[in-house]
């Protein structure tokens, strides 16, 4: 099939970007979306143009590298998929596909479709851990964890840190990402001791880094490729309040 692409091109963080149009023929339905871009890049390179820069690594939905805003949706059409899991069967001959990087003040674009998401690591540094040094752990089975808590912690822990939640949110809030981590660690007895403090410092860091505040629109949950639930935000808010009462 033949498709029309409108792709955001930007040389580097300091340059102005703009959309550039490409016609791409010979696209087949059994390509993945990223393989379609590989194919575009091959034709660009062979005809003497600069290929489009985009991020990817595992190409199976687990590393969180891929991060394209496709036709107005983070990770494109389809629910519970990352960009790399998206297949070209979703599109048909003659379609126009608009591809942008994540847009958020805290995720500056560094080239074409690549945004700098290191702010997520900074938030994690503020408290996304359990303070246990190597060697001081008790025997693994000495603290039982109910299967319910453990399963729910796991659900929260499946966040791949892709940033789609931020890109989906009109306020560019990182609440879902922060909530997933706080929930994961709070639900486990091992992480409980630090939970109020953790919530407070991660939220403070998120604010400091320029992410917006959460107004409960739910856009993040709708676009999260891992189905992280808004319920985690409610838990985060509870932990946050506890911290307020104590502090």
């Amino acid at each position: 099939m033949e498709i029309k692409l409108k792709i955001w091109r930007q040389k580097d963080a300091r340059s102005q970007g703009s959309f550039v149009d490409y016609n791409l023929s010979g696209v087949s339905g059994d390509m993945s979306f990223l393989e379609m871009l590989d194919f575009l890049n091959k034709t660009l390179i062979e005809s003497g143009d600069e290929p489009v820069a985009f991020e990817h690594d595992c190409r199976e939905g687990i590393c969180g590298s891929c991060s394209l805003y496709i036709n107005g949706r983070p990770h494109g059409p389809g629910d519970l998929v990352t960009t790399c899991e998206l297949r070209m069967t979703r599109f048909k001959d003659g379609d126009t596909i608009v591809i942008e990087p994540w847009r958020a003040k805290s995720f500056p674009v560094i080239r074409d479709l690549i945004a700098d998401r290191s702010a997520f690591d900074k938030i994690m540094e503020a408290g996304g851990f359990i303070s246990v040094g190597t060697g001081s752990a008790p025997e693994a089975n000495s603290i039982p964890v109910t299967k319910e808590d453990s399963d729910e912690a796991f659900d929260a822990a499946t966040c791949i840190g892709c940033g789609a939640c931020v890109a989906a949110c009109k306020n560019s809030s990182a609440m879902l990402f922060v909530a997933a981590k706080v929930s994961h660690l709070t639900l486990l007895p091992q992480g409980h001791a630090e939970s109020a403090k953790r919530a407070q410092s991660m939220v403070a860091k998120m604010d400091e880094l320029g992410f917006g505040s959460c107004t409960n629109t739910g856009a993040c949950e709708a676009e999260c490729p891992k189905g992280i639930s808004l319920a985690h935000i409610a838990r985060l808010n509870r932990e946050f309040l506890k911290a307020g009462f104590r502090g």
Binding site: I130, V132, E139, S150, Q190
Partner: peptide, 12 residues
């Protein structure tokens, strides 16, 4: 032991 203490949610 180390992983469980660090919050790795192994199946239970």
């Amino acid at each position: 032991d180390q992983m469980v203490a660090a919050g790795v949610p192994f199946a239970r």
